[in-house]
Design a protein around this nucleic acid. Structure first.
Length: 269
DNA sequence: ACACTGACCTGCGAGC
DNA sequence: TGCTCGCAGGTCAGTG
């Protein structure tokens, strides 16, 4: 699933492939995917060029000449650069026809992804109620201590809360907590200052390693150039049967509406 | 204000 | 074999 590292990989790959390309036409095949009418969407995008590429949390940011196109891939959203004559499968919901032979196609089996158009000067700091980026200095142990004051949720829910820190999803939340030796169900009330320091350290450590892996393991699909960095970080606990460290059986618990994987031996309550 | 639940979607695998 | 059912996961609206 696209979390921060995968979104980062997609952004950098697309930047390489379609920088300065012009949108000549837009076809919206599933209107619920966008935040306005297909006619408006098309009108605002045709004639624009892809000038700059960035990421905020799990959101992809495409800076065009006069407008900002924001895309959230949710669970299964993928971008492909394909030749215009290539057949369009039923899961492709938005097509950006570019100058030249190619199209930028958005595919999303479960139709969960969303696209929106915003002014170029949109304040990304408070955008979608997002918290700091994991690599910003603002995300530190004192910030965490302050954020959890008066709260009582499980620490797993804290990591998934995008207003706490932007970009962590279910898989990396489990991996970060394993590295910190904290059980996902532990209340944030029981986090020590040292735990908070560890959360900051291992969040960055794991995300950096995942980004690096994403940069090197992009898989090409059969007839098209895949732009989704489908890396799979070798997980220690998430979706594993046995602990990568002690070999103990991994437990799965339902926390905050998500399955959470942990090692009862390596991670403390 | 905070915490939890269901809706949004489709494909896949388990169980009958 | 063919059916139903539950699960996967990010975000947000709605409820308690």
């Amino acid at each position: 699933m696209p979390e921060l590292p995968e979104v980062e990989t997609v952004v950098r790959t697309l930047e390489h492939q379609i920088h300065n390309q012009k949108i000549e036409n837009v076809i919206v095949r599933y209107p619920k995917m966008i935040d306005c009418s297909p006619a408006t969407f098309k009108k605002k995008l045709v004639g624009q060029h892809f000038r700059r590429f960035d990421r905020r949390g799990k959101y992809l940011l495409f800076y065009l000449d006069d407008i900002l196109l924001v895309v959230h891939l949710r669970m299964e959203g993928k971008f492909f650069i394909q030749k215009k004559e290539e057949p369009i499968n039923k899961h492709i919901h938005v097509v950006f026809q570019l100058n030249g032979k190619n199209e930028l196609r958005y595919q999303d089996t479960r139709k969960f992804g969303r696209m929106e158009l915003l002014p170029l000067n949109t304040d990304l700091k408070t955008f979608h109620e997002l918290g700091p980026e994991p690599f910003e200095e603002e995300f530190n142990a004192s910030y965490i201590k302050n954020f959890i004051k008066g709260k009582s949720c499980p620490v797993k829910s804290l990591l998934l809360d995008q207003s706490f820190v932007a970009g962590i999803g279910n898989i990396y939340a489990d991996e970060i907590l394993f590295a910190c030796r904290i059980r996902p169900g532990r209340s944030v009330k029981r986090l020590t200052y040292k735990d908070c320091e560890n959360i900051v350290f291992y969040t960055r450590d794991i995300l950096i390693k995942a980004i690096q892996a994403g940069g090197t393991t992009i898989r090409s699909y059969t007839s098209s150039l895949g732009v989704t960095g489908r890396f799979q970080l070798s997980c220690q606990v998430h979706a594993q049967k046995f602990c990568g460290t002690c070999g103990n059986e991994i437990h799965v618990k339902w926390i905050g509406g998500r399955s959470s994987y942990y090692c009862p031996k390596c991670q403390e309550k």
